[in-house]
């Protein structure tokens, strides 16, 4: 039951993009096409889940164990960058065509602040190992959800007659604001 609550809380109520405003760059940049949004969301979910596990182990057995908590941010940045590189190398070895088609999304994740936010949040929330992984997975699902909703709306906007001054970035930011307001309605659910 606790894991389900963590999942709902991270994916919907405390959605990284629409409530915490983390990962706005890919949210705006990769939400033009639904296909790309799903790919980016899945890649981010994968990296977030593994980051949650690695960050938890690193924090408990190295940083806390050696009283090096002040190195949290630096070590998490290093872990995320190395992890993304490892995943990229893994996909490149496993399937070159897949890497050529979808590998583009992986390096973009290195610069996604939502991943670093996740690592710092899970330390702050003092979850156990399993809870941390569920938290990481749910955060990725929430990120994908926000991206897919946004992409769906932007694809519809391509067909709509948007007034000239609102075309492009302005209408995208207005939609993002409306979505954030809608997600605020979930606050207090748990």
């Amino acid at each position: 039951m606790n894991l389900i609550l963590i999942f709902i809380s991270a994916a919907i109520i405390n959605n990284y993009v629409l409530v915490s405003f983390l990962g706005i760059c890919p949210f705006i940049g990769v939400s033009k096409k639904l296909g790309s949004a799903v790919s980016m969301g899945m890649a981010t979910t994968f990296v977030m889940t593994i980051t949650a596990a690695v960050a938890w182990l690193l924090n408990k057995y190295i940083l806390v164990g050696l009283h090096l908590e002040f190195l949290q941010i630096v070590s998490f940045i290093l872990v995320i960058a190395s992890l993304v590189q490892l995943v990229e190398m893994f996909i490149k070895k496993v399937s070159r065509p897949l890497y050529d088609t979808l590998g583009i999304f992986l390096p973009l994740i290195t610069t996604n602040c939502a991943i670093l936010g996740l690592a710092l949040f899970l330390v702050m929330k003092q979850y156990n190992f399993t809870e941390s992984i569920v938290f990481g997975f749910a955060s990725g699902v929430g990120f994908t959800l926000a991206l897919v909703i946004m992409a769906g709306i932007r694809e519809e906007l391509e067909l709509a007659e948007v007034p000239q001054p609102f075309r492009g970035a302005p209408i995208t930011l207005i939609v993002a604001g409306c979505l954030a307001l809608a997600f605020m309605g979930f606050s207090g659910l748990i």
């Binding site: 096409k33 890649a43 994968f46 889940t49 596990a53 190992f129 399993t130």
Partner: peptide, 30 residues
């Protein structure tokens, strides 16, 4: 032209399968 259905299928295989595997491995072992 980008074939959306094929991209979705590839994404689910490339990222979804290892992700489900990782979650299953960790949670079942626990």
């Amino acid at each position: 032209e980008q074939i959306g259905a094929n991209q979705l299928k590839l994404t689910l295989i490339q990222y979804g399968l290892p992700l489900i595997g990782f979650l299953a491995g960790v949670l079942l072992t626990g």
